[in-house]
């Protein structure tokens, strides 16, 4: 499974700058705690929409890669 990645590396979003801006804006005026909550809610909503366990676990590993 790890040999054939399912997580897409090419661009899948139509307007990257819009998305980036929307993410930053969503956090405006929030405390660190509230921001953590927003991020967690967002992750759950997106994860459920994606629905593919293999993709999600690849994404978790990819997100962690190179951090620690």
């Amino acid at each position: 499974m790890a040999d054939v990645p399912k997580l897409r590396a090419d661009l899948g979003i139509a307007a990257p700058d819009d998305l980036y801006e929307a993410l930053i804006k969503a956090h405006e005026g929030l405390s660190q705690e509230q921001s953590n909550l927003l991020n967690a809610r967002l992750i759950f909503l997106l994860a459920n929409h994606v629905g593919d366990d293999a993709v999600l676990h690849e994404a978790i590993a990819a997100a962690r890669e190179g951090i620690a």
């Binding site: 953590n36 909550l37 967690a40 809610r41 759950f44």
Partner: peptide, 21 residues
């Protein structure tokens, strides 16, 4: 810790409106 608590409260907070949660 901040992040595990955030995930728990996110799941609890979404659960009323969003059946999947």
């Amino acid at each position: 810790g901040a992040v595990p608590v955030a995930f728990r409260d996110a799941a609890l907070g979404l659960a009323t409106k969003w059946p999947f949660a």
